[in-house]
Design a protein around this nucleic acid. Structure first.
Lengths: 334, 334
DNA sequence: GTGAGTCTCTACAACGTTGTAGAAGCTTAC
DNA sequence: GTAAGCTTCTACAACGTTGTAGAGACTCAC
């Protein structure tokens, strides 16, 4: 049975409220009293009961972070950054996995955790803006990933279109003309896959290159396996191409694997550029060129926006566009 | 202002306790009453206040998971598995990162979160068994990773020594005699690094191979960068060797990168085996042989042990040894 | 010495839920 | 008809904390 404030108060010979005051830094307390209380806290090994404090305060000090899968390196690294940013506000992060499942994403939005956390940082994959409008209700949410449609939600993103255009343009600058795009979601109306495709097409257009539908390959989950499968499909179809823009790094690493397996060289035969700049990108052979989003910046901005939103529920919704940077490595050299 | 049970009760025309009873499945309730209550719940969009329930129940329904870093793929994948195992008990997992920092690990053990979670699953890196004894107090904890010394804590592990021996023996069977070990922690008295070194040495001994101190290279953090650095050090020192057992896969992938960069071939010149079988292992070029721990099994066992311990604080401590399997791929072929 | 202001501490109620105890009505068995 | 048992519901207190309100002591200026 853990000690309560009552126990501390009794031992220190003061009222419960005085203990509470000492512990919460109320200034008008005699030094001797404070010392007595702290001694009692120490002696009893007292720790405050968080549930009780939360009940009183109407807050939990927890925020949710909903991502598709932690085992995807990008989201592992992102969660890492969010947890560290939240720590600075002494918030605790509760990570929830949606598994890229629409039902679970809706569940997160409308779900049971809403009573448990003060707010939510949400990286949606499948739910639409309409879903978000509908299920969000009156709850502080910050979305990761830009919304094409106007939704009344704070959001943090990198300029997906811009970044994808930059990556594709880089391939064009190095002399490639037949560039595959791997990772589209043909049935989505919005979301990163749509935006990255848009950027890819924009870059082709600017260079006067006619897009070729055969070079645009869907991939649902953006895992290595899917990247490899997509690349194999391209290679086996006999379509001629000399580069691939993969919509994230795990796809790219899978694709690179398939190219090498097929007996071709990267970048000489096929250049590859990825997106996210996960740690593996630097240590693949050859190292992978990639778009590095400002992960720290994104995490911090998301936490900051959420903090503002929790403090003041009604204020105009903001969009933060984080920086990105193309990291050129050997997978696109020459 | 969200609706409370009082609001629901008023709307349904019953007592607060009846609402509570309906919601918690108490059997003696007339169907008509139940329907009225549920209708009211629906109409008000009522959600139970978790803090209040926790305060009453003395439990939070949260468990902690403390790992060094989520951005390390092994821990990302592990967290994934633990979260899914916890879900089956309708527990929520609170992930905490220790950053391989001793102070933070001690903080996790003795720390503020203890009031917030009902129990803790802890993958320690730096703290000793003595630390654990000292700081744990009376709190349900399950350790991941075996303890060499006898500690009164439940723990789940794979047989590190055995697995390391298997990995090393595999290199020996393929004809290698000069085998490096990458990832030791020379100052540790216990922990995975120590055990894996022990397994490595055991395999050498059994094959009648004299260990060579020059081939045993420390690496603190087991990141790719460290694996690459360790391998570069070996290669530049001019020490002759034909294989490396790396204490985890990220080290191994970094090491493989350094070997290829150095113009040598894997496995022809240097064979490499890793540990953890993270997803990347299958998609490196060449694919990496590795020890696959039963991640799901570990996660489930940890959650089960924790559940038992929370239910009944005083019962003998258990150790679960999970299975492992050597996955042979091309990095050690031939 | 009196009033105003400052400092230090306390009692009480409230946050939203559930366990305990028990009331009231209804059924059953004799 | 009545005791015993079952079904359905309710009032109240309690979980551990903090906000509100205010009591008392002390200081200072006049």
């Amino acid at each position: 049975m853990p000690a309560t404030m009552h126990d501390v108060a009794k031992l220190a010979g003061v009222s419960v409220k005085t203990v509470s005051n000492v512990l919460s830094g109320y200034p008008y307390i005699r030094e001797t009293t404070k010392a007595k209380v702290l001694a009692a806290v120490d002696e009893l090994g007292y720790r405050m009961n968080i549930s009780a404090r939360n009940l009183r305060a109407g807050r939990t000090g927890l925020i949710g972070l909903a991502v598709p899968e932690l085992s995807l390196p990008y989201f592992g690294e992102l969660a890492d950054a969010v947890i560290r940013a939240a720590e600075e506000r002494s918030w605790t992060v509760l990570v929830e996995q949606t598994g890229a499942d629409r039902e679970r994403e809706v569940g997160v939005l409308s779900g049971a955790r809403r009573q448990l956390v003060d707010g939510l940082i949400f990286a949606p994959l499948t739910v639409s803006s309409a879903d978000i409008e509908q299920f969000r209700g009156d709850f502080p949410i910050v979305l990761l990933g830009e919304r094409t449609f106007d939704v009344a939600v704070d959001n943090v993103t990198i300029g997906n279109v811009d970044a994808a255009r930059t990556a594709t343009a880089h391939l064009i600058e190095t002399g490639r003309r037949r560039i595959a795009a791997i990772g589209t979601h043909p049935t989505d109306a919005e979301g990163p896959a749509v935006l990255r495709l848009e950027g890819y097409l924009a870059a082709l257009r600017e260079a006067g290159i006619e897009p070729d539908a055969e070079l645009i390959v869907p991939a649902g989950l953006w895992h290595r396996a899917e990247g490899a499968a997509a690349m194999r499909q391209l290679l086996e179809a006999g379509t001629r191409f000399d580069a691939a823009f993969c919509f994230n790094d795990t796809l790219a690493l899978g694709a690179m694997y398939a190219v090498l397996r097929h007996g071709l060289r990267v970048p000489e035969d096929i250049a590859i550029v990825g997106f996210d700049d996960i740690e593996d990108a630097q240590y693949s052979m050859p190292p992978l060129s990639s778009i590095a989003p400002g992960r720290e910046q994104i995490a911090r901005a998301a936490v900051d926006l959420l903090a503002k939103r929790i403090e003041e529920r009604e204020h105009p919704h903001q969009q933060v566009v984080a920086d990105f940077e193309l990291r050129v490595r050997e997978s696109t050299a020459g």
